[in-house]
């Protein structure tokens, strides 16, 4: 019994973290029409920065500073490379792919120079074991989940109740019209890219102490899964991403208890693939 309780708890935690990642992708797609392949690299950057800054700023300080840096970087990159020019979506895809490669290699060089290794262990910032029956659950994961849900709530408020959220929805729904009524579309787009990047960075900073290591390639696996979640949730839809993130996380965690972890992941991906086939616009998307 306690096994299932622990598994469900873990699925909930990961669901929230996946949602954080997929939402960033989804927001960026909504505003820019770009599938951001650099998302995994931005996530990795968040984890790396928070690991590097933790000794000076404390972990909690780095949790604020690292995503901010990643977000600002995202803003800058978007202004530089993904600016105003309306272009073929595939071209933008390749630009983000190039950004991914560069960030990944810069991280590799940084790690190699500072530690001489490509992977580095991350210490848990706190150790609060929560006893459930004869087993333990790491308290830090619950804290990470709480942080993630607070940010998700904040995002929801931002989206629905602020002027910025209003501008954002306008840009998402009709870029031409938004420009005509005087909305500074490029700046809104860049700020959304920055926000999405910051979300990825935050997810990375939160996940680092859970997976216990940072490496330049840690973003690739995460990128693929979050792309699928974002697409199946409906690109540009917040509720859809959240729902699919939970679907993915719960099916993966529960299947892992029944079969081997690889087949569990393949099964969870298959579920997502079915959603895409049955509803090409995604769960929360409008056609």
């Amino acid at each position: 019994m306690e096994l299932w309780a622990l598994t469900l708890l873990n699925a909930l935690v990961w669901g929230l973290l996946w949602a954080l990642l997929a939402l960033g992708l989804s927001l960026i797609y909504g505003a820019l029409g770009v599938l951001n392949l650099a998302h995994g690299a931005l996530y990795m950057l968040g984890a790396l920065l928070s690991w590097a800054l933790a000794p000076t700023l404390s972990f909690w300080g780095s949790l604020v500073v690292a995503p901010t840096i990643v977000g600002l970087m995202g803003f800058g990159l978007a202004r530089l490379l993904l600016d105003t020019r309306e272009r073929d979506p595939l071209t933008s895809l390749l630009i983000t792919f190039g950004i991914m490669l560069i960030l990944q290699q810069l991280a590799a060089i940084f790690l190699q120079m500072t530690t001489g290794e490509l992977r580095h262990a991350v210490a848990a910032p706190v150790r609060w074991p929560i006893a459930i029956g004869a087993r333990f659950y790491e308290g830090y994961r619950v804290v990470a989940a709480l942080v993630a849900s607070a940010v998700l709530l904040g995002l929801w408020a931002l989206w629905g109740w602020t002027r910025w959220g209003c501008l954002l929805r306008a840009v998402r729904d009709n870029r031409e019209l938004a420009r005509v009524v005087g909305i500074p579309v490029p700046r809104v787009q860049a700020s959304v890219f920055g926000l999405g990047a910051a979300l990825a960075g935050l997810a990375g900073a939160l996940v680092g102490p859970i997976t216990r290591e940072v490496s330049p390639t840690m973003g690739i696996e995460v990128l693929l899964v979050s792309v699928f979640i974002a697409v199946a949730g409906g690109l540009g839809s917040l509720g859809g991403s959240l729902a699919v993130a939970f679907l993915y996380s719960f099916s993966e965690n529960l299947l892992t208890m029944l079969t081997d972890p690889l087949l569990a992941r393949a099964g969870a991906l298959l579920a997502i693939g079915l959603i895409v086939l049955v509803r090409p616009q995604g769960l929360g998307g409008t056609s």
């Binding site: 490379l81 390749l94 630009i95 792919f97 190039g98 950004i99 490669l101 560069i102 290699q105 810069l106």
Partner: peptide, 10 residues
């Protein structure tokens, strides 16, 4: 190499 590759793509 991979760094140069990224720059080349961009």
């Amino acid at each position: 190499y991979a760094l140069a590759l990224g720059v080349v793509i961009l």
